[in-house]
Simulated scan of single mutants.
Amino acid sequence: MIIVGELPNSRAAQALADYLKSQGVPARIRPAESGNFAIEIRDEADLERAQIEFERFLQSPNDPKYYAASWSDGDAKVRFNYQKGPSFFHQLKQGAGPLTLTILSICVAIYLLAVMGLAEAIYTPLFFFANLQQANFAEFWRWFTPVLLHFSIVHLAFNGLWWWMLGGQVEKNLGLSKLLLILLVAALLPNLLQYFMTGPNFGGLSGVVYALMGYCWIMGRRAPQSGLYLAPAYAGFMLFWLALGFMDVLGIPVANGAHLGGLLVGVGQAFIDSHRLNRGGES
């Protein structure tokens, strides 16, 4: 059997396998070592066609044609266990890689220490430089560490969820080094832009999140073989929230410079990587 690709959801994988069978390509699914579900075909001659359908599925997984195929061509012998799903911590681990989970853990730890009364002691050495003209650049970490600071549970939960979902997607599909590159660039440049717009008192992963949103959005459209995808509705929400921030109608402090800078970093990196992938190189 030849593996066409892997999907994290057994029902989605079966829907694609059923659709391939309806198109004359015998297919089946099986659990993969990664914790995902692999879609397999028998004949190598069908591989190119199956890969094209796999990429189309990544772009439009909710297309009714896939689930319609399950009704007409589904395997009656397939059984799914809905009684007890994996634990929260298992899902958390399976949905991300070590870098994603490490950064998330650091953000949570810093926030908890701040709540325990250590805010000044822990935030002060991690803020951006108070004055770049008089900065001590031996404290080089200040270029990056504002992304680890969050000032409310909502702030942390919102950024943490997006970081886990999108950062995990990038790390799982393209590796730790790619996520690390995006993290560092999307911390440095947006932080710098935000400093020149409002000064040094800012923090949060939102600039990096915007970079990941832009990256997954463009990669999903230009290089679906990367395995990355962002639903158009999420991309629309991202742009709408960005516009609201610049219109200053939200009633809360918003790091507009970091958001815009992160988005530009992610989109730019995606155009570079998608071009390399489509030419047959590595991203």
Rank of each mutant, 00 (worst) to 15 (best):
A255Q: 04
Q269N: 13
A243W: 15
Q225Y: 00
L264G: 03
Y215R: 01
I272N: 08
F271P: 02
P253K: 14
L260Y: 04
A211G: 12
S226T: 07
Q269T: 12
R276F: 04
F202C: 06
F240M: 06
L250F: 04
P224H: 06
S206L: 13
L250I: 04
H259W: 09
G266N: 01
L242H: 10
F202W: 01
M238R: 01
C216I: 05
V249R: 01
A233W: 05
F271A: 01
H259D: 09
G245K: 12
L239Q: 00
V208E: 10
Y229H: 13
I218H: 02
L250P: 08
W241I: 15
N256P: 07
G261R: 12
Q269R: 11
A223M: 06
A255F: 11
G245A: 04
Y234W: 14
C216T: 05
M247R: 15
G251W: 13
L205A: 06
A231K: 12
A243V: 10
A258G: 14
G214W: 02
M238A: 13
P224M: 01
L205Q: 11
F240K: 02
G261Y: 02
A243E: 03
A255T: 03
Y215T: 08
L228E: 08
G227H: 06
Y229F: 00
L228V: 06
A270T: 01
L242R: 02
L228P: 02
F240E: 08
M238Q: 03
L264C: 04
M213K: 03
H275G: 15
H275W: 11
G262P: 02
L212K: 06
Y210A: 15
F246A: 10
L205D: 10
A211V: 04
Y215P: 11
H275S: 15
G227Q: 08
S206Q: 10
F246P: 12
V265M: 05
F271Y: 14
Q225M: 10
G207R: 08
Q225A: 15
I252M: 13
G262Y: 06
S206V: 14
G262S: 08
G220P: 05
V254W: 03
Y210R: 12
R221A: 15
G227N: 09
Y210Q: 14
Q269E: 11
V267D: 03
P232V: 12
Y234E: 13
G261N: 08
S274M: 00
F202I: 05
Q225G: 15
G245Q: 11
V254F: 05
Q225T: 12
M219D: 06
D273K: 05
M247P: 04
G268A: 09
